Amino acid sequence: MLLAVDVGNTNVVFALFEGREIRARWRIATDPRRTADEYAVWLLQLLAIEGRGPGDVDRMIISTVVPRARHNLAVLGQKYFGLTPLFAGEGAADWDFPIEVEAPRSLGADRAVNAVAAHAKYFGDLIVIDFGTATTFDVVDFKGAYKGGIIAPGINLSLDALVNNTAKLPRIAIEAPRGNSLIGRNTEDQMLIGVYWGYVAMMEGLIARLRAEIGRPAKVVATGGLALLFDKHTEIFDAVDADLTLEGLAILAAKADAA
């Protein structure tokens, strides 16, 4: 079985694949100081709950945007699973598609992995939106080439900036505003309307401009934890795919096996 690890700025997601099917997934807060032993104490117990053990894992692949987490995860693979992990974008798991930006190696591994999965699953020209710590918009053409994209503050970052830089505004949770009115009747509703509907307007505006620049019909694929929250109140998504990054890792691992 394949153990795929997606390291983001906020969370690390571990997924256990059997073939191309995810059999289990687990999430832990990102902490670059977390040692291989600490990961193992947590992960091996979760594997046991699923009736699995280290011997069931015969491959491991990691995508990380947190360089300091890399070493400890590599040690986790070597010490507890007897494996040398693949790293997305390197060696046998290197990208096999054109990255048409000024500094290709500066492209985040998560965004490149999303491009791999989106092209394999949805075809045609694509705009991939990933709702993470930052919200990214990535353009992949019908040939699978990565053309570039946009980086915007994630909605939680935007809300944190609003709360942390004002004296009287309260901390609120992100959720869809009640009703359809844009006229808030209290402070909390006004904040939620501003952040939520402002974010929807930003996405709709950027997608319209990207489609116009691409000049061909482009599907919009959304992934990340908040995609479903926005899908309820906008028509811009053609698909919401929560496991896009993990599936991209499985595709890369399979290509490495075949090489």
Rank of each mutant, 00 (worst) to 15 (best):
T10A: 07
L44D: 05
L210W: 09
F131E: 05
V139N: 10
R23Q: 13
D243G: 03
A173T: 15
G91Q: 13
I155M: 14
P170S: 06
D56A: 12
V116T: 14
M191R: 08
Y196L: 01
A227Y: 08
Y199Q: 09
I61T: 01
K219G: 08
L159N: 10
I127H: 07
R27A: 04
I207E: 08
V65T: 11
R34A: 09
A242G: 01
R70S: 11
L244Q: 02
P177Y: 07
G179H: 05
W197N: 14
R52L: 14
R52S: 06
G53V: 01
G148L: 10
A239G: 00
G154P: 03
I22Q: 08
A48E: 15
T30Q: 04
A227M: 07
D56C: 02
I127Y: 11
E213T: 14
P85E: 09
R34Y: 04
L157T: 13
L246C: 04
V7M: 05
K232G: 03
T223Y: 13
G8P: 01
Y199F: 15
T64A: 11
R33D: 14
A259C: 02
I172P: 15
V65E: 12
N156F: 01
A258T: 15
S181V: 04
F17G: 01
I150P: 00
A256Q: 03
I236T: 13
V195D: 04
G8L: 06
V200F: 09
N11M: 08
G124H: 03
G89Q: 10
I251H: 01
V240Q: 11
R209Y: 07
M191V: 00
